[in-house]
């Protein structure tokens, strides 16, 4: 474990707390893409299946349990608890266009052609693009509640912090994970225009609004 990855995981943790806090305080999931949240549950279940057969550490164990449980809880909040505030008509990104290629790529580019390894690879590729329905919705509405932008900033920072973690591990532990690195760069790249608006507007106290 290194500081970058720890900060990344804490940023990921924070993003989930911010999202749950937003849904509970505003009693609504307005502006949140259900599809993106459902993709994250898929990512966590596919990636953390090794909970049943591989022990890494107490930290790893509890974080995996937390991420699966909290992301399922968010789906529950959106689908049942605050259902009336969920508007599927603006959450229309075709997730088949994300899941399909992730499946195909995981069958071609993987480290070992084994079931759990292909699931892990699929989760890595899917996570890289899982935010697209959310960004698509943001683009369509053209604005977002400030707390939602803090959620996205924390979520974007999580994988961005993994990049220095991979550089650090390359030089200190002599390990490299090309699949995770390429996917992580794509994932972080998708946030760049959001971060531009976030840092130039939201952090200057303005509302998050995309240029019309």
């Amino acid at each position: 474990m290194n500081l970058f990855r720890l900060l990344g995981d804490l940023s990921h943790l924070a993003s989930i707390f911010i999202l749950i806090h937003k849904i509970q305080t505003t009693r609504s999931c307005r502006g949140i893409s259900f599809q993106t949240q459902a993709l994250y549950v898929t990512v966590f279940v596919a990636r953390y299946i090794d909970l049943f057969f591989r022990w890494i550490s107490l930290y790893n164990f509890f974080m995996k349990i937390f991420f699966i449980a909290s992301s399922v809880y968010i789906l529950y909040l959106m689908k049942y608890r605050y259902r009336p505030t969920h508007d599927p008509s603006i959450d229309t990104f075709k997730v088949e266009y994300l899941v399909g290629p992730a499946v195909v790529l995981s069958l071609i580019f993987n480290y070992k052609f084994e079931f759990t390894e292909i699931l892990w690879t699929f989760s890595i590729y899917l996570e890289a693009v899982a935010i697209l329905p959310q960004l698509f919705m943001l683009q369509r509405t053209g604005e977002a509640e400030t707390i939602t932008t803090h959620y996205l900033a924390a979520l974007g920072a999580y994988r961005a912090l993994y990049i220095p973690n991979w550089i650090y591990r390359y030089f200190t532990e002599d390990v490299v994970d090309p699949i995770a690195i390429v996917a992580g760069l794509v994932q972080t790249g998708l946030y760049l225009d959001f971060f531009y608006v976030y840092f130039t507007k939201v952090l200057q106290g303005q509302k998050f609004e995309l240029p019309a």
């Binding site: 090794d50 591989r54 890494i56 995996k64 390990v175 994970d177 090309p178 995770a180």
Partner: peptide, 10 residues
């Protein structure tokens, strides 16, 4: 550089 054996990252 050794490719990663066990996925120890989240």
């Amino acid at each position: 550089k050794g490719a990663v054996e066990v996925h120890d990252e989240l």
